[in-house]
Nucleic acid binder design. Structure first.
Length: 953
RNA sequence: AGGAGCGUAGCUCAGCUGGUUAGAGUGCCUCGUUGACAUCGAGGAGGUCGGCGAUUCGAGUUCGCCCGUUCCUACCA
């Protein structure tokens, strides 16, 4: 073995072996345990969020697999309608090929498939580098035939049950991508804009209560006045209530519109008068519905002014009565140009009353980055309100548990106020809506055109299919069961659904988690007829941010690719990567400079184990996880520590009897101690993993391996193994313990450190007489209470405190660690004598002592430095080592420290209410503590007196 | 505006149902190349746990208010 750990030399090899040997597939025996991967977008590449999520899922899966569960980690990818379509369109453009429209739908979709085969799902390959033990045999893609059939089936059933309907509604419209998007795909951004106050003259010579011949409306979007169909005032408002029912004349277009009374208009807000544009604003739409105001659509799909307005009644039917002529000069202007023009014209005509600065939040499409427009279109909707009822109760009743629990609030908040879900998208890539129209606009829903014709006896009448596709989240909502074969009642579905746990980020609780619960509970039933939940637990992890707590994003240039941490990357390559294909190339220089500052040498290769372990260690209950390269380095060092511990063990055990097969074995105190401590570590790690506390699990493991096994046990094994006169049976006992504890450590660590543990285990396991081809299939360690040995633990604690006491004296007095010391022990009890006798050898070796002597009662001891271990006094004779004054000062410091403690305790114990009211075991504990401190204090003060005496002589 | 999270050592974070001398990693200081490991070893410094108040014998931990910070939802005529 090399003296440093080189992850790259083992990782790929082991992954290929595991995959080749089929270890990832469900074993077919044991209780089922299943996790569905949140299907990554096929256009995506692995980022830190994935790495975190996958490290956690793989840790869970490996843990349960080792516990003997029948384990499925379902893998697959999502077709991601908009994102994928955008990628392929961009590729066509850069390659100078005809665009989507020129190609036509069929050819374009073929291009998307071709792209998918060539470069889609790269992320799936990257998962292998992380070591993910997913069931590759059953990988799924949401656009595969089987999955598509499931999606279609779900749509048809929901439609037939009246839970899907089609309607003309105001939707969030993306004028760049030319599709409806859900409000979850809308990102609200703070922007500073203006508020324009516009005079609307009153018709028929009316005046306001204060005598004005006009009313003033305020708006942030003056261009929409072309589509106004009313003005609302509050019915209680004394200024305007008498005007309800009369009319105003819209400036620039000179169209009369009515004044309505509606609570939507608040008296104390703005001017108290609100212009109503039902076709272009969600609130106005609602007002329009209440007052039967017509709707005038003035915008084209790409948000320019139409040649002629589209007029509809409030029920969506055509309205041919209104003269909604759009002045020639505005036609064809885009929404920003027309705003400028309208403002100029209003100003010129004197209708512009005032302008003020106004900060507001404006909705942007999260994919396209352009401001979205509320737009009146025909869309398909899911009646989410009905589906939400059981979904809410499943969490209320605890059938689904959120970890951490607080996230259920987010889930409830959304579901209890859920809006109908617009599921149609005006895209070409996705599941085509299985609906056909005849020439009269009648709609027929079914699994295919043939099927529809038969079912509705349509004969040969011409039909055309709805051109739209379904929202990608509609298919993802079926993920937990459609991947298992639904609607077919497969064995996999029966076995693995409901799944055991869903691991996901809180940002998609609405998008995905809630919707999966709704649809699973609608379509699936438990054996007792109850709606079936998709998962029993939702483990919600935090979001990874950079060192400064900033979200990692391409535009900020602070993205770190997990693979670069595994394999390493040069500064130049990293800079190139961070500045390639930027949306805003002007930042490239800054990003390159910052990258150079942050990673002057590029990034080292840390390996997948270190990365995974770090991610687990950072996965605490908080919502944000700030990434820290230093932590990664620390845990890489941990891997190296484990590696070298294994080297040490192999060095002393290979080719030796490690099991006592020939002459038996006996266990030293240290052996019994480490075995006892191992039980505690196993309990802690298991408890942490059962509670999804990966940070605590990694911490417990780290502590045990480094601070107990390596720092103490390996050191304690040296005096035994290096003692030429030592008993063979004792050496065998130590070798046996070295090997067996290490073997247990490897299994304990395997879920979080799969590669290094497998590599080491291959050499260690045979020494412990363990058969088996892989650590993956060995049982997970479980604590055995019979092996807990509290006496051994306290004996070793004693030993450690004596050793630390001596080392500390040495360091404080600047005595070279190389110098052998002779120490004198004084006071102490029978227990101390016994312990010294049993551990003399350990003590001498680890504290680097030449000899240890007990001072007899009353014997004159040399002038010494003193350390305390319990009521045992440890004396290191001063002679030749240090200045007496130094020692006097050191002792004074110690005494002072003790005194503040003693004072605190005395105050506490003299407080009657504490003694009376606190539980007696607490009081006893405090009393005992005080006793110990007083003993130490006495010893130190005696020493101090002795030293001072000598000094004054 | 409503809701949530966070605020503990220079930095990144643990601290469970109230009782420790408040912990870890990293950084810092001192010393150290003896045969697992300098990706190391030994020792050490460093915190009035955001502020104020309440409950309690006892609060980093429970409650209230405030401050800072991040996010979500809603609204913005």
């Amino acid at each position: 073995m090399d003296s440093t750990f080189h992850p790259q030399s083992i990782e790929q090899h082991w992954y290929q072996e595991w995959e080749k040997r089929g270890y990832f597939a469900p074993s077919g025996t044991g209780d089922p345990f299943s996790i569905m991967i949140p299907p990554p977008n096929i256009t995506g590449r692995l980022h830190m969020g994935h790495a975190l999520q996958y490290s956690i899922m793989d840790a869970l899966i490996r843990y349960r697999r080792m516990q003997g569960r029948n384990t499925l980690w379902q893998v697959g990818t999502d077709h991601s309608g908009i994102a994928t379509q955008m990628v392929v369109e961009r590729n066509l453009a850069t390659e100078g090929e005809p665009d989507r429209r020129a190609l036509g739908r069929e050819k374009f979709v073929a291009k998307v498939w071709q792209w998918k085969e060539e470069s889609g799902g790269e992320i799936i390959q990257q998962m292998r580098r992380l070591g993910n033990s997913v069931d590759w045999e059953n990988e799924r893609f949401t656009m595969d035939e089987d999955f598509s059939n499931s999606v279609q089936e779900a749509f048809v059933r929901l439609y037939e049950e009246g839970l899907i309907y089609r309607g003309k509604r105001l939707v969030n419209w993306d004028p760049k991508l030319l599709t409806a998007i859900s409000d979850l795909e809308v990102e609200n951004r703070e922007t500073s804009g203006k508020m324009w106050h516009i005079r609307y003259p009153l018709a028929d010579g009316k005046t306001t209560a204060s005598g004005d011949r006009f009313i003033v409306v305020a708006t942030t979007r003056p261009e929409t006045l072309l589509g106004d169909t009313g003005v609302a005032v509050n019915p209680e408002d004394p200024r305007y209530r008498d005007l309800i029912g009369s009319q105003v004349i819209l400036p620039l277009v000179n169209r009369p519109v009515g004044i309505v009374g509606d609570d939507h208009a608040q008296m104390d807000k703005g001017t108290g008068c609100v212009k109503i544009t039902p076709a272009h604003d969600f609130n106005d739409y609602a007002v329009g519905q209440r007052h039967n105001l017509p709707m005038i659509n003035i915008l084209t799909k790409s948000a320019s002014i139409r040649q002629s307005a589209e007029c509809l009644n409030s029920d969506g039917s055509d309205n041919n009565d209104i003269d909604a002529l759009i002045p020639q000069k505005y036609r064809g202007l885009n929404r920003f140009e027309v705003r400028r023009q309208i403002i100029a014209d209003l100003e010129e005509s004197g209708a512009l009353h005032a302008i003020e600065d106004n900060d507001m939040t404006v909705p942007f499409g999260d994919r396209s980055g352009v401001a979205i427009e509320p737009m009146l279109t025909d869309q398909w909707y899911v009646d989410a309100k009905k589906l939400a009822v059981p979904a809410v109760s499943a969490v209320e009743k605890g059938r689904i548990k959120f970890v951490p629990q607080q996230y259920e609030n987010m889930y409830f908040a959304w579901l209890r106020n859920v809006q109908d879900w617009c599921i149609s998208r005006q895209l070409w890539w996705g599941h085509r809506i299985p609906a056909w129209y005849d020439d009269n606009g009648h709609v027929f829903v079914g699994n295919s055109e043939t099927h529809v014709r038969e079912k509705y006896q349509l004969g040969m009448r011409p039909l055309h299919q709805d051109p739209d596709v379904l929202d990608t989240w509609f298919s993802s909502a079926l993920w937990s069961f459609a991947t298992l074969g639904w609607p077919k009642q497969t064995n996999r579905l029966a076995l693995f659904h409901p799944t055991s746990v869903l691991v996901t980020g809180f940002d998609i609780i609405f998008f995905w988690v809630a919707r999966m619960v709704m649809l699973s509970m609608h379509f699936l039933r438990d054996d007792d007829g109850q709606p079936q939940v998709p998962f029993e637990t939702v483990y919600v992890h935090g979001l990874i941010r950079d060192e400064q707590g900033q979200k990692m994003s391409k535009s900020k240039g602070n993205v770190i690719d997990p693979l670069d941490m595994i394999d390493g990357i040069s500064l130049e390559d990293l800079q190139a990567k961070r500045t390639a294909n930027m949306m805003q190339p002007q930042f490239a220089k800054k990003i390159a400079a910052r990258t150079k500052k942050q990673f002057p040498q590029g990034i080292e290769a840390y390996g997948a184990d270190a990365l995974r372990f770090t991610l687990c260690a950072l996965a605490s209950t908080g919502r944000d996880i700030n990434w820290d390269m230093k932590r990664l380095e620390g845990y890489r060092n941990f891997c190296n520590k484990l590696w070298n511990a294994a080297r040490y063990v192999l060095l002393h055990t290979e080719g030796c009897d490690c099991n006592g097969d020939t002459d038996g074995y006996e266990l030293s105190l240290a052996d019994q101690w480490i075995v006892s401590r191992l039980q505690a570590a196993q309990t802690d790690v298991e408890h942490a993993l059962n509670n999804y506390r990966f940070d605590l699990a990694s911490q417990a493991l780290y502590d045990f391996v480094w601070n107990e096994y390596c720092d103490w046990y390996l050191e304690l094994s040296k005096p035994v193994l290096w003692d030429e006169n030592g008993r063979q049976t004792l050496k065998t006992g130590t070798r046996r313990t070295l090997v067996r504890v290490l073997e247990a450590i490897l299994r304990l660590a395997h879920p979080m450190l799969p590669f290094i543990t497998e590599e080491i285990w291959q050499s260690i396991a045979p020494l412990a007489n363990i058969d088996g081809d892989t650590i993956m299939q060995r049982p997970y360690p479980k604590a055995d209470p019979a092996l807990i040995n509290l006496e051994a633990e306290s004996d070793i604690e004693w030993l450690k405190s004596v050793i630390v006491g001596i080392r500390s004296l040495r360091a404080q007095m600047n005595i070279s660690p190389a110098k052998l010391l002779s120490v004198v022990l004084e006071k102490g009890g029978a227990e101390d004598h016994r312990r010294l006798q049993q551990n003399n050898q350990f003590l001498c070796k680890l504290a680097h002592l030449s000899e240890i002597n007990w001072a007899a009662e009353g014997e004159e001891v040399p002038v010494s430095m003193t350390a305390i271990a319990g009521d045992l006094e440890i004396l290191v004779p001063l002679a030749g080592h240090v200045d007496i004054e130094d020692e006097r000062q050191r002792l004074s410091r110690e005494v002072n420290k003790l005194h503040t403690e003693i004072d605190k305790l005395e105050a506490k114990l003299s407080n009657a209410s504490f003694v009376n009211k606190a539980p007696s075991h607490i009081v006893d504990k405090e009393r005992q503590k005080l006793e110990e401190l007083r003993t130490s204090d006495q010893i130190l003060r005696d020493r101090l007196a002795a030293v001072s005496r000598i000094e004054s002589n």
